[in-house]
Design a protein around this nucleic acid. Structure first.
Lengths: 190, 190
DNA sequence: GTCTATATACCGATAGAC
DNA sequence: GTCTATCGGTATATAGAC
């Protein structure tokens, strides 16, 4: 196996394990076991656990940027793009019920650890924040756009926390429907 | 020092440390250091870390029940009571910006650990959920009451996650204002 | 009730053979 | 590039003196 392919496997396994078990609760042995490598060999690819976290965050950033680009391509209407974001809570409901929001739970954990990479993990949410702001701006909401984007993020984070706790699919559907109605009723002039 | 007084000190210190650093990231040495005891003596009062978590959850339940009783006494109007809940995000903004919601972050962590006490930690949020449901019922929302209660919880959890990440007080104020307006515009007949 | 000393296990990280 | 062996640190938990 080439080094880059092994590295990619490690990042993919770590990404999933950090999501399912949390960063601190995931050990090198866990990741090594998932990839099928020994612990020792691990350090050939990454010199520390923080280096893996850094790579995981970079991988997530690339993936999320891909989502945003796809939504922009598939939806010419900015309101429809915002809807695509709102609906990921329902589209990814199985994972969210089991493990919460990958970005929200990571920032929550890193904040408690006072981890230096909290800022970089937070940048992943800021990616959506800025993109949503731009969509609202395109709809004519001007200086209100940033606050509206934050409101959409508030909904998605809150829904993810409670979906994870109560594991109730109908709750997710209701909250998404409510958010869709909110977006539809919004008016740039009010 | 009597055993019960020492025990109470331990629970209070553990409550705060679990909130600030998280459950798993807090060690016995941390708690013992905060109380001024040796690690060894610790097991005289609690036989395991889970036993401390259990006591912390029980203490939080008592405290939150006290809040609800106080709000009921001070506010005859159920809508004003709901407002009291909505406003705790702003009232406790300093702690929430630094450490998030004590209940939400604990359930998020315990879910990832697949900890057996997740249910009991979740019951603390259910305490508010049931109480909010009852207030909406008193306002005449009938079978919609439960969903409205969940919507209020969604707001408070989402706002706490993002307040913790961005540490922006004006964001908290805006979201609380928006939630207040939402509550005011609600109509039992619609 | 509080202490010191210690058992046992796992963690992240390193060294060096192959 | 992958392995085994191991270091140093810290975690929960226990034993026993005082």
């Amino acid at each position: 196996m080439t080094a880059s392919a092994t590295r990619e496997q490690i990042v993919r396994a770590a990404d999933r394990l950090f999501y399912e078990r949390g960063f601190e609760h995931t050990s090198f042995a866990d990741i090594a076991g998932a990839v099928g490598l020994s612990r020792g060999n691990f350090y050939y690819h990454f010199k520390s656990k923080d280096a893996i976290l850094d790579a995981v965050i970079a991988a997530r950033r690339d993936e999320r940027r891909g989502w945003l680009a796809r939504w922009e391509n598939e939806e010419p209407d900015p309101a429809a793009r915002i809807l695509r974001f709102i609906e990921i809570v329902h589209v990814n409901r199985a994972d969210i019920q089991a493990f919460g929001c990958p970005l929200g739970t990571m920032t929550t954990e890193l904040a408690k650890l006072e981890h230096t990479m909290l800022t970089q993990a937070g940048d992943l949410l800021t990616l959506f924040r800025d993109w949503l702001t731009e969509q609202f701006r395109l709809l004519g909401y001007a200086e209100r756009s940033g606050d509206l984007a934050m409101h959409v993020l508030t909904f998605s984070q809150g829904a993810a926390v409670l979906a994870n706790l109560y594991r109730d699919e109908s709750y997710i559907r209701r909250e998404v429907d409510q958010m869709r109605a909110w977006l539809h009723a919004l008016q740039p002039t009010t």
